[in-house]
């Protein structure tokens, strides 16, 4: 899943300073799994922010609300009536969630509370490791399921064990990077619904 790390409190405070009523929106998806942006983390972040505001004599209030997933418009519906009561939104979701909020509430300033880091795996509780950069042309088929070009030693050992060394003896053509423009994914079984009308 998507792995994120919360921005330093000072940075968050700096971005929302000047707004009196702040709504911090959590996400029950990936960021909740990696223990950074779910209901619980919204609560602690708000407590820390409130304390900081008090210390600095800033007259702002921050409330929290966590949706099931921030990257789906249907999940945001329940926020519509709430959002109007606030001056700005803080998002505890990944970058996709932040953008979804900003798109749905174009008149409200939306600020990210996270640094979105990677697509990764869970190692220990609270420990995550990057595994994919969403290049859009997965090469794992011939690297024995190991990513990162410099891991050749590991790749070699695994392929040798699987008797598949021929996979890396071949020359592979230059990558066709798919991740340099924003992509939209339509699954094949739904393509017919969105087929462009021919003129």
């Amino acid at each position: 899943m998507v792995k994120v790390k919360r921005k330093p409190l000072e940075e968050i405070a700096e971005s929302v300073k000047g707004y009196t009523k702040i709504l911090n929106v959590g996400c029950g998806g990936c960021v909740s799994v990696c223990l950074a942006g779910g209901q619980r983390e919204v609560k602690t972040t708000n407590a820390e922010l409130t304390l900081l505001f008090e210390e600095k004599g800033i007259n702002s209030r921050v409330d929290g609300y966590t949706v099931e997933r921030q990257c789906n418009a249907a999940c945001l519906e329940e926020l519509d009536d709430l959002v109007v009561r606030y001056d700005c939104l803080l998002s505890m979701a990944c970058g996709a969630g932040v953008q979804m909020l900003a798109e749905r509430y174009p008149s409200k300033p939306v600020f990210p509370a996270q640094n979105t880091v990677a697509i990764g795996v869970d190692r220990e509780i609270g420990v995550y490791e990057e595994k994919c950069r969403a290049c859009g042309r997965c090469v794992l088929a011939y690297t024995g399921g190991i990513w990162i070009p410099c891991a050749w030693n590991d790749i070699y050992i695994r392929l040798k064990q699987q008797n598949r060394l021929d996979d890396i003896k071949k020359i592979h053509l230059a990558m066709e990077w798919q991740n340099s423009t924003p992509r939209t994914i339509v699954q094949p079984q739904y393509e017919h619904l969105y087929a462009k009308e021919e003129k």
Partner: peptide, 12 residues
């Protein structure tokens, strides 16, 4: 950058 690797560069 590592758009292409050294083997692909040779080939290019």
């Amino acid at each position: 950058v590592y758009d292409i690797d050294s083997i692909q560069l040779v080939n290019m």
